[in-house]
């Protein structure tokens, strides 16, 4: 991550973008700690207040989390929570589908076969992607 003082983009946003792409590229992994305000300020040669602003913005965007007394960390909890709720939503859809199938007196094997067909259809529609 390099800061360009000549750019008119505010430095704190440059830092936000820098960290965001580092997380995206896998350079900073979920759960990893971020440098302290002072350490990053020294590394980038910028005002620590600016680093603080960047961290606050990243936290607001849900990309990082602050752990009291320990420091700032790349978010994982957010990811897991989202994941969990997404899976919960899908499970719910399945449950409803199964309930309708039972109501139509379709057997468990029948339900499984129907599921395979649907999976196959969506696979073909998505162009071969699993």
């Amino acid at each position: 991550m390099r800061i360009d003082p000549k750019s008119h983009v505010p430095i704190y946003l440059q830092i936000v973008e820098g960290i965001r792409s580092e997380i995206g590229s896998g350079l900073r992994r979920p759960g990893e700690s971020l440098p302290s305000l002072r350490a990053l300020a020294v590394e980038l040669l910028v005002n620590p207040n600016t680093v603080q602003r960047a961290y606050e913005e990243l936290e607001r965007q849900g990309l990082i989390i602050s752990r009291r007394g320990v420091g700032m960390f790349v978010a994982t909890t957010d990811e897991e929570v989202t994941r969990g709720s997404e899976e919960e939503a899908v499970l719910d859809t399945f449950r409803k589908g199964i309930a309708s199938a039972r109501a139509a007196r379709i057997s468990t094997r029948g339900i499984t076969q129907l599921f395979e067909v649907a999976l196959g259809q969506t696979r073909r529609r998505a162009g071969g992607r699993t």
Binding site: I11, L45, N47, T50
Partner: peptide, 8 residues
């Protein structure tokens, strides 16, 4: 450049 980097 330094002023930009460091000054609030």
């Amino acid at each position: 450049d330094d002023v930009r980097r460091l000054a609030d």
